[in-house]
């Protein structure tokens, strides 16, 4: 319910905050009913922190604004504080961290950084590592690869992506070559990056996404 409100696959813009609000309300109710369950606090924390960015993640004409370009001064401090408190409550139960608690921790890392440059990427990389232990999934690995690239070097991020590439079940997963392309581009390996973007473009059925990928491929060419 929260994700539907947050990522807004459809519906009017006024519906979205309402959906998030209602999900958050239900989460808070649940936390009082199951106070000894760390994952409930983790989920509430995650929703509170994500909600704090709700106002800043969409431009005037409804276009999405990515985290880096959001005006952090407009993030809702009250919701962040509530989120951090819920996170603390979940952690103090002293049980091992589940997926929600870990995702809330990651979200908290961004919330605590007053500027994007202050983001604690080493911590985020470690949290994704932990998340991939409790909830193994290619998308978690890809996130980890980028976090590792930010914290240390895209060389190490690339190693993580390459490990995924040998997985036969992922051979049609377009996000793999797409992320690989970005990492290679960062390393200045433009020929290889271009090939990856083109490969990713051929794999996706989403027209908008394909255009973006082909644009990235031409960008590589221009920089050569």
């Amino acid at each position: 319910m929260f994700n539907e409100g947050f990522s807004a696959t459809s519906g009017d813009s006024w519906v979205r905050p309402l959906l998030c609000q209602e999900a958050l309300r239900l989460g808070r109710v649940l936390a009082e009913h199951a106070p000894l369950e760390p994952e409930v606090h983790g989920l509430v924390a995650l929703m509170e922190i994500q909600s704090s960015r709700l106002k800043t993640r969409m431009g005037p004409s409804g276009e999405p604004i990515l985290l880096l370009d959001q005006n952090r001064a407009q993030w809702d401090r009250l919701l962040i504080r509530r989120g951090l408190a819920a996170l603390e409550r979940g952690k103090q139960l002293g049980k091992s961290y589940g997926p929600y608690l870990l995702q809330a921790e990651i979200s908290a890392c961004h919330a605590k950084a007053t500027a994007a440059a202050d983001t604690n990427w080493i911590r985020i990389a470690a949290l994704y590592e932990a998340l991939s232990q409790v909830m193994p999934s290619p998308i978690v690995e890809l996130n980890r690869a980028v976090a590792v690239s930010m914290a240390f070097s895209p060389v190490f991020g690339l190693q993580i992506v390459d490990a995924l590439c040998s997985e036969p079940s992922l051979k049609e997963y377009h996000l793999l070559p797409s992320v690989r392309g970005d990492l290679l581009m960062k390393l200045g390996q433009l020929h290889e990056a271009r090939a990856e973007f083109e490969r990713a473009a051929a794999m996706t059925r989403n027209i908008r996404e394909r255009e973006l990928l082909l644009k990235r491929a031409t960008e590589c060419m221009r920089q050569l």
């Binding site: 985290l67 998308i139 890809l142 996130n143 980028v146 930010m150 992320v179």
Partner: peptide, 29 residues
């Protein structure tokens, strides 16, 4: 339709949004 075993569940979509945010930071950083 091929989805190579990757289900489009809301959690997945949320993680993809996180990935987009991180990649954006990597590009611009």
């Amino acid at each position: 339709e091929d989805n190579s075993g990757i289900v489009k569940d809301p959690k997945q979509l949320a993680m993809q949004a996180d990935l987009a945010d991180q990649l954006h930071m990597l590009k611009k950083g």
